[in-house]
């Protein structure tokens, strides 16, 4: 089943066509990677999907539903979560609160319950906290619940952002350059984490990444972008062999 279907998407900034008539789809359950040189338009694609930018043209469907104009916060409720290329955590909030933010953003209890501290409030808060601890544990952050996000190490912050995204309990998770600034050992761990997310929570994953070994290791399919255009799409094997890709992008790294 197509979980995401992007049709003829287009977005320009001034004279720059950041995304130029791109169509692709993502199958439920797969790991789909987007690669391409800097400025190719990958992050812009994520921003379009999550409604942070409005496309100039084209449509986006999420499980048969047209989400081209759906506001960002609604998308989170529909089941699309994301992380950001340069991490956007709630720096002054604790690790626990960061994860709770997405868990509690669902319909849990209303204003009246909050002010009057009804039973419903207590129950929902407790349930959310228990769940949050599970996510925190899953990403190896237990013990750090009460640390502020900004006090974590870089790698921990990356994992916390994944935890926060995953705790919206999405069906599709968009991950923007999770491996940036990581050493080979951390990259290997990251690959395991991503595989584990997919298995345990049966989430479809779309990932933007420059680290080729990571991409080739985890992806089912890969889309290659350059200058806002889609160059090709295929399995890791096909991408590795494709001349255009090697020319445009992979050249040095694959040798």
């Amino acid at each position: 089943m197509k979980i995401l279907d992007v049709r003829n998407l287009e977005k320009s900034f001034g004279g720059v066509k950041a995304v130029d008539q791109i169509s692709f789809h993502i199958e439920e359950g797969e790991v789909f990677s987007i690669i391409g040189p800097n400025g190719a338009g990958k992050t812009t694609m994520f921003n379009l999907i999550t409604g942070l930018y409005r496309p100039d043209d084209g449509r986006i469907f999420f499980i048969d539903r047209d989400i081209t104009k759906t506001p960002t916060y609604m998308l989170a409720h529909l089941g699309i979560a994301r992380t950001f290329q340069n991490m956007r955590l709630f720096g002054s909030l604790t690790v626990l609160e960061n994860v709770l933010s997405s868990l509690l953003s669902k319909r849990t209890y209303n204003l009246f319950s909050a002010v009057m501290r009804t039973k419903r409030f207590a129950v929902s808060e407790k349930a959310a906290e228990e769940k949050a601890r599970k996510f925190i544990d899953f990403f190896g952050l237990s013990g750090k619940e009460d640390y502020t996000a900004s006090s974590l190490s870089y790698g921990e912050q990356r994992r916390l952002e994944l935890a926060r995204a995953l705790s919206t309990e999405p069906r599709l998770m968009l991950i923007d350059e999770p491996g940036a600034g990581m050493n080979p050992k951390e990259i290997a761990d990251l690959a395991e984490t991503i595989k584990a997310i997919r298995q345990r929570y049966s989430v479809t994953i779309a990932i933007i990444e420059h680290q080729m070994n990571l991409v080739m290791n985890i992806s089912d399919r890969i889309m290659v972008m350059d200058f806002g255009e889609k160059i090709m799409e295929g399995t890791p094997e096909e991408v590795k062999k494709d001349k255009r890709v090697i020319e445009a992008y992979l050249g040095e790294e694959m040798d």
Binding site: T50, T72, R88, F90, G91, S92, L100, L104, S105
Partner: peptide, 25 residues
């Protein structure tokens, strides 16, 4: 009571990073 509820949490999220706040729903 408001501050120590989901509403207070959302407010503080917005203060820290409004864009991230919309992204988590």
């Amino acid at each position: 009571n408001l501050i120590h509820s989901r509403y207070g949490l959302f407010w503080r999220c917005i203060k820290d990073d409004e864009l991230a706040a919309t992204s988590v729903g």
